[in-house]
Design a protein around this nucleic acid. Structure first.
Lengths: 134, 134
DNA sequence: ATTGACTCCGTACTTAAGTACGGGAATAGA
DNA sequence: TCTATTCCCGTACTTAAGTACGGAGTCAAT
């Protein structure tokens, strides 16, 4: 039933280094499957999902500590804590989305301005992001 | 006319370390004002804006190299390059927004489920993000 | 004019997040 | 069965992004 991947195939599947997986295990982000008598550990799809999630979240600007908090939600917690953590993360996620959306609009305008144009353009990227921040 | 900040006041204003500013100068992300004869450099609001932008972009998951590319758009470039760089960045920005929006929805649901509840909840954070990715 | 705070600049140290290394065990394919 | 490939695990190295340090110069207030 449970798919049985070795750490190597798991790593290849997800596109990370074996050492990275082991590093995440040491940090407690990924649980290390029990080792069968003097043998080799086996992993399942759940591990692959978790690894992909970690990589996504990192790309979104979360540190591994923060990723750990997000994962703790997945792992099941009491409601008080969930409300606490999820609530906080929700705020930062929304902030980031707002910032990204500003940048997105600006980049789109820039590309639009440029289309077919052959001169130089100057872009008010910073000023506008700033007014967003203020 | 031009406001005259020392590196120290600039740093305090933006909330970064003086050494960080100097580091960004070495990396070419922030230009170093000309030094008056045997004296002390002076900075203007434009520098503060640029520093804040760098910090924002970092929080959104851009490396300093990527931030450099974004800043190059601000600094004025030929349209060919702008279209190239801005177009690429636009793609990644949109991807990130999509991912964040998935996480946002999930967190919101979680918090909602919890509200008033006193038991445990388990959250399908990873599974759903995964289906978003696939 | 002197003192205290700050700047300048180069070099060295730190932290987070990996990556690599190496020797011994396990296991899969010829 | 032998041999090549993985795995296991600890330790050490690397890279990106800062941070700290120290000695000499500068500026502003007493």
């Amino acid at each position: 039933m449970a798919e049985r991947y070795t750490i190597g195939t798991l790593a290849r599947q997800v596109g990370v280094n074996v050492e990275t997986i082991r590093y995440y295990q040491r940090r407690g982000l990924v649980q290390e499957p029990a080792k069968p008598f003097g043998g080799i550990r086996h992993y399942a799809q759940a591990h692959a999902r978790r690894l992909r999630f970690i990589k996504e979240a990192q790309r979104l600007g979360f540190s591994l500590d923060e990723v750990g908090e997000l994962l703790s939600l997945e792992d099941g917690l009491h409601c008080r804590e969930v409300e606490e953590i999820a609530g906080q993360k929700l705020v930062t996620v929304r902030e980031r989305m707002a910032q990204l959306s500003k940048i997105e609009k600006l980049l789109a305008v820039l590309v639009g301005q440029c289309h077919g144009n052959r001169g130089k353009v100057r872009c008010p990227l910073i000023a506008s992001l700033e007014s967003a921040t203020a």
